[in-house]
Amino acid sequence: MTDAIRHVVIRGRVQGVGYRAWVEHQARLRQLEGWVRNRRDGSVEAVFAGPEAVISEMIDACRRGPSAARVDAVDNDAGAPDWLNLREAGDRFSVLPTV
């Protein structure tokens, strides 16, 4: 059972620096559900589902990112439960193809 779902878009130098793999690792450490993917506009998009406090911690971590990244902005808003259906079947957290 998830307490909250947040949709997050991270902008800056966040592609080509291992940002998606880092998000996946951090989300799995926190036992969050969801997914992450690159967007063609150069941003990274993610959906996190779980306890609100843990999601807030994850969003704070996204503001820092991995060492090679430069995060300029992190926007987040409420997500919808059906967004979790984009995950790979059987995955708790997925890295999705670029959109």
Results as ranks from 00 to 15, higher is better:
Arg40Gln: 11
Gly90Tyr: 04
Val8Ile: 13
Ala46Asn: 05
Gly18Ile: 03
Arg40His: 13
Ser67Trp: 12
Gly65Asp: 03
Ser56Tyr: 09
His7Gln: 12
Arg40Leu: 14
Gly34Gln: 04
Met58Arg: 06
Glu57Ala: 15
Gly34Cys: 00
Arg92Ser: 11
Asp3Leu: 03
Val8Met: 10
Glu57Leu: 12
Val44Arg: 13
Gly90Lys: 00
Pro51Asp: 09
Arg63Asp: 01
Arg13Ala: 12
Arg92Asp: 11
Trp83Gln: 10
His7Met: 10
Ala27Phe: 09
Leu96Gln: 08
Ile10Tyr: 04
Glu33Val: 09
Ala21His: 13
Leu96Pro: 09
Arg30Ile: 04
Ala49Thr: 01
Ser56Gly: 11
Pro66Val: 03
Gly50Pro: 02
Val99Gly: 15
Phe93Ile: 03
Pro51Asn: 08
Asp60Gly: 15
Leu29Met: 04
Ala78Tyr: 04
Pro66Tyr: 07
Ile10Leu: 08
Gly90Met: 00
Val47Asp: 02
Gly50Ala: 05
Ala73Met: 06
Ala89Lys: 14
Ala89Trp: 13
Ala89His: 11
Asp75Arg: 06
Val17Cys: 14
Trp22Lys: 05
Gly50Ser: 01
Arg63Leu: 00
Ile5His: 09
Thr2Ser: 15
Arg20Glu: 08
Ala53Lys: 13
Glu57Asn: 13
Trp22Asn: 06
Val47Asn: 05
Gly90Asn: 01
Gln26Lys: 13
Met58Leu: 01
Arg87Ile: 02
Arg87Gln: 01
Glu33Leu: 08
Leu32Ala: 05
Val23Trp: 10
His7Cys: 11
Thr98Leu: 12
Met1Leu: 08
Met58Val: 00
Asp91Trp: 08
Pro51Met: 01
Gln26Ser: 12
Ala80Lys: 02
Arg92His: 12
Arg20Thr: 07
Cys62Glu: 11
Ala68Tyr: 15
Asn85Lys: 07
Leu96Phe: 11
Ala27Ser: 03
Val36Cys: 07
Ala21Pro: 09
Leu84Asn: 03
Val95Ser: 07
Ser94Asp: 03
Val74Thr: 02
Asn76His: 09
Ser56Arg: 15
Cys62Asn: 10
Ser43Ala: 01
Arg39His: 15
Arg40Cys: 12
Trp22Met: 00
Arg20Ser: 11
Glu88Ile: 15
Asn38Met: 07
Pro66Asp: 03
Val9Tyr: 06
Val44Tyr: 15
Ala27Asn: 05
Thr2Glu: 15
Asp72Glu: 07
His25Val: 05
Ser67Phe: 12
Leu32Ser: 02
Asp41Ser: 11
Trp83His: 09
Gly79Pro: 01
Ile55Asn: 02
His25Arg: 12
Leu84Ile: 00
Asp82Met: 02
Ala53Ser: 14
Val17Phe: 14
Glu88Pro: 12
Gly42Trp: 07
Ser67Asn: 09
Thr2Val: 14
Arg92Gln: 13
Val74Met: 06
Arg39Leu: 15
Ile59Tyr: 10
Arg11Ser: 14
Val74Ala: 00
Arg63Met: 02
Glu52Pro: 13
Arg39Ser: 15
Val54Asn: 03
Ala53Val: 12
Glu33Met: 09
Gly79Cys: 04
Val23Ile: 06
Asp77Ala: 14
Val74Tyr: 04
Pro81Asn: 00
Arg20Met: 09
Leu86Met: 01
Asp75Glu: 04
Ile55Met: 00
Arg70Glu: 13
Leu32Cys: 02
Val36His: 07
Phe93His: 00
